[in-house]
């Protein structure tokens, strides 16, 4: 564990908690993409299957349980909670997320390190995580006016990705043989997807204005 990795995990945790807290306290999920949240639930469910097969640390297991629990709670709130579900922007959140799942699954079947059930699903989760934010970014573009919490959620997620890249650079430099092309490329693609959003986020921050994305 290095400082970049810890900072990455903490911003990731903060992003999910910000979102869950927002939904729980103000009983609204306006501006939040259910498609993205469902994709994250799939990402965590397929990546963390190794909870049952291997143990790394208490930290590792605890964080996995938190991410699983929070992502499925958010999906539950948005789908079934009687007040929250009414605030969901159903008409705007039209991204066909299954068109992301299938190519990722095919890619994982083709490009992986080992052809085992757990390894292919783990690789699939990396590919899917890279693109899972897309429905959320599309929804942000459509609604344009973004409340602070949704903006912070995406900002924190982007921060998490940035720190993970630093973590990989650090590990590459300090740990012998730390080379993971699949993880790195998927992670880099994911980080790049945030670049556009970050540009407008900082613009609005600099000008002290409410965040607005161009249509």
């Amino acid at each position: 564990m290095n400082i970049f990795r810890l900072a990455g995990d903490m911003t990731h945790l903060a992003s999910v908690l910000v979102l869950l807290l927002k939904i729980h306290t103000i009983k609204s999920c306006a501006g939040v993409s259910l498609k993205t949240q469902e994709l994250y639930a799939i990402v965590f469910a397929t990546r963390y299957l190794d909870i049952f097969t291997s143990f790394y640390s208490i930290y590792n297991t605890l964080m996995k349980l938190i991410f699983l629990g929070s992502s499925f709670s958010i999906v539950w709130y948005m789908r079934y909670h009687k007040t929250v579900r009414r605030t969901y922007d159903r008409e705007q959140d039209t991204f066909r997320h299954w068109f992301l799942v299938l190519p990722c699954l095919l890619l994982a079947l083709l490009i992986h390190e080992k052809f085992t059930f757990l390894e292919v699903l783990w690789t699939f989760s990396l590919y899917l995580e890279a693109v899972a934010i897309l429905p959320q970014l599309v929804l942000l573009q459509r609604t344009r006016n973004i409340d602070n919490l949704t903006g912070q959620y995406v900002f924190l997620l982007g921060g998490y990705r940035g720190f993970y890249i630093l973590n990989w650079i650090y590990r590459y430099l300090t740990e012998p043989h730390f080379v993971h092309w699949i993880t790195w490329i998927a992670g880099l693609v994911q980080t790049l997807l945030y670049a556009d959003f970050f540009y407008y986020y900082f613009q609005s921050w600099k000008n002290n204005k409410k965040l607005q994305l161009p249509a």
Partner: peptide, 10 residues
């Protein structure tokens, strides 16, 4: 190298 050192990441 077959040790899964990225599997301890989240």
């Amino acid at each position: 190298k077959l040790v899964d050192d990225t599997k301890d990441e989240l």
